[in-house]
Nucleic acid binder design. Structure first.
Lengths: 213, 213
DNA sequence: GGCGACATGATTGTCGACAATAGTCGTGGA
DNA sequence: TCCACGACTATTGTCGACAATCATGTCGCC
């Protein structure tokens, strides 16, 4: 693993975790001293994150953290729905017995987190659930695309996760997905995933009228 | 538009058109003299094309044109099916009257190309059909992803297009898609697109046993 | 004759410097 | 007072050079 890759991961993480909020300028020289490396290394990272859709790069004008409007977040979630349904159906077909157990455990933990009203824990379990699903699917093309789309909408995703009452609704949708996968039911798994993401879009759309950003 | 962007487009085109066939090494210094620019510029292009999935880059070992196995081509086409169905349904909803006419014209030209047995023309019209659909959809997220997936599987796509008898089957599937879109029938458009790509996968799968690469 | 260590060459990773460009501030004139 | 023009500054785009790393071929040893 080369230094550029490391910096790319670090910068990606910093963007996703909010160290650099949407719209922030990413000046190469500043990043240079933050990550202690040359400008070429930083540039490589910026180019990569730009093609991932996490940063905007205008010629001679520099890079900024990409701002995702609610409208675009909806598009992203629609695309994610199409792909992640595919992932879910493949997971239902290919998952091992251990993986199915692991998935059930995650759902159980999610229920606990909801009961304890711990939104941070829930958000992390949510990520874990979807990551596990991607691994189970064995469909690396769709899995990679989904992971990227999740990153792109991470900001809105986070706001959604901490929305009061949302977790309680969401957890049952995850349970439905997990249950279908446990039963090796590809079609139901895909449908459950699709329903889950349509529900996410519904919430985003309601926000669109009133919500900020 | 910066020089790096130009070189990126040129290199992408050269890869897609077969100037650099799959597996070919992309040595930075050689590309430097081919495109008449510095190594930094070439590197930028390679990084971008690597994240697009068109080139492989191993640390300290250089870049090569990505080899896509038949298995991966199937995965790519599955993902494309999921996304392009979404694109088709959005196209059915949002397309203008002129765009619907344009789509019908393309299908008519395709029929002509099939009758004339002109595979090169048909392949080009095929690209045009799908590009037009992406524009009609207004769904930039899905459209960009689909365009990228098409590039990644371009090699197999091309082999499929010149397969004897394939165009005749394919053209009717395109006609079905166009017809659904003309009728503003989102669900049917999506289903027709899905059927089209499942048919593509079917052919790829049959190849998988006997076909080369 | 086969195997492993070592030198060699080719290629990439990283850095600093220079050139080019966009944005900004100040000045002069109408 | 307002607009146009020009210099200045900040930042990016590009280049060449050096260091680091991997692959290859050679030599000696078993």
């Amino acid at each position: 693993m080369t230094r550029t890759d490391t910096i790319t991961d670090d910068l990606r993480q910093d963007i996703l975790s909010g160290v650099f909020p949407p719209g922030d300028r990413l000046v190469e020289l500043q990043l240079t001293q933050r990550y202690d490396c040359g400008r070429a290394t930083v540039r490589g990272a910026l180019v990569e994150l730009a093609t991932e859709g996490l940063v905007d790069r205008e010629a001679n004008r520099g890079a900024t953290v990409r701002r995702i409007s609610v409208g675009e977040a909806i598009e992203i979630t629609e695309a994610r729905g199409a792909l992640e349904s595919l992932v879910a159906s493949h997971a239902a077909r290919h998952a091992s017995a251990e993986e199915r157990v692991a998935l059930r455990c995650v759902v159980a933990d999610m229920r606990e987190a909801v009961a304890a009203d711990s939104t941070a824990t829930y958000a992390e379990l949510n990520r874990q659930f979807h990551r596990l699903l991607r691994e189970m699917s064995g469909h690396s093309v769709a899995a990679d695309l989904v992971a990227n789309l999740r990153d792109r909408a991470a900001y809105h995703q986070y706001r959604l996760a901490i929305m009061p009452g949302r977790a309680a609704v969401s957890v049952e949708q995850h349970a439905a997905i997990a249950s279908a996968i446990e039963n090796h039911d590809e079609a139901t798994a895909a449908a459950a995933m699709d329903a889950h993401l349509r529900s996410v879009i519904e919430v985003l759309r309601r926000w669109g009228d009133a919500g900020p950003i």
